[in-house]
């Protein structure tokens, strides 16, 4: 069951998005977040939704994978939707019972916020995790933030830590699954009882997981030393990052998209968030 989590996993491929420079993809992600939060009009949300469908199509990541990636935040989505439905005030009252008032605006707002969350998660994970290998991502971050080295920020080390963390997500998920099964076999119960007792039931999972993570970290550190790792100095890369025409094109398209969203916000008629 835990194996279904795809957040933070890379799917190798040769699509247009796969071939973009990781730095471009980081910049595009930032743009995309800005675009997502600047969308106000119902039409800009429609455009946003269309764009995320197109991005998925171009990346050739299967929709099944995308849906599996969204599933972990399902509860957050439902929670925000409920909050928006019940707490938004408007003019068009649809339902009234005692103190509960549901307005049409509330429902639309809930749907738009839902689209925003889906677009945000899917868009960023397609650019950053699904189509960019952690090493490329690290490379991108390292290069993008290398000016910070001058003021003493250990950019290489932070980037390396991040890529290792991403590398070990599937390994640790597998391990958690194994530990849970081992505890279940001894009669542990994770799914019934009060919240407090369920939280307590997690302790026998978390402790072995931590112990094993530390042991893995130690072994990994030795293995890296054996492979002559000594930080960023004097290190070369197999894949050299180069900006191509594709990268400028992608950034250009996103700038256009941002401009379009802002224009739609201002001029389009109809509901606005």
């Amino acid at each position: 069951m835990l194996k279904d989590i795809t957040l933070g996993q890379f799917f190798p491929g040769e699509s247009y998005i796969h071939r973009l420079d990781p730095r471009t993809k980081i910049i595009l992600t930032v743009f995309y977040i800005i675009i997502t939060f600047s969308a106000k009009s119902i039409f800009s949300f429609a455009a946003l939704f269309l764009s995320v469908v197109m991005i998925i199509g171009i990346s050739k990541i299967s929709f099944k994978t995308i849906i599996r990636g969204i599933r972990p935040v399902l509860y957050i989505m439902i929670f925000t939707m409920i909050l928006n439905i019940f707490l938004t005030n408007g003019e068009d009252l649809l339902f009234h019972w005692k103190f509960i008032k549901i307005y049409k605006e509330g429902i639309i707002t809930a749907l738009l916020v839902l689209v925003r969350i889906i677009v945000l998660i899917t868009g960023t994970s397609v650019f950053i995790t699904y189509t960019t290998s952690p090493i490329q991502l690290t490379d991108g971050i390292e290069r993008l933030f290398s000016p910070l080295k001058r003021i003493g920020v250990p950019v290489h080390d932070l980037a390396m830590m991040m890529s290792l963390a991403l590398r070990f997500i599937p390994t640790l998920i597998e391990e958690t699954d194994r530990i849970m099964n081992a505890q279940k076999a001894r009669g542990a119960d994770f799914s019934t009882g009060s919240l407090a007792s369920r939280v307590r039931a997690l302790i026998p999972i978390i402790i072995p997981l931590f112990v094993s993570a530390y042991r893995r970290a130690e072994e990994l550190a030795v293995a890296m030393e054996c492979r002559c790792y000594r930080g960023g100095e004097g290190r070369t890369r197999m894949k050299i990052l180069t900006y191509g025409l594709n990268d400028f094109f992608a950034i250009f398209i996103f700038l256009l998209f941002l401009a379009a969203i802002i224009l739609i916000n201002i001029y389009a008629p109809g509901f606005k968030l």
């Binding site: 890379f10 190798p12 290998s133 952690p134 090493i135 890529s163 290792l164 991403l166 590398r167 390994t171 893995r216 072994e219 990994l220 293995a223 890296m224 492979r227 002559c228 790792y229 000594r230 004097g234 290190r235 070369t236 890369r237 197999m238 894949k239 050299i240």
Partner: peptide, 25 residues
């Protein structure tokens, strides 16, 4: 084997050692 692979793609992992040695791309 899990605790000595550093990359999420096979070829990038194999490249890790030579990269550390400063071998040209």
């Amino acid at each position: 084997p899990d605790n000595q692979l550093v990359a999420t793609v096979v070829e990038e992992d194999v490249a890790f050692g030579p990269e550390n040695l400063g071998v040209p791309p």
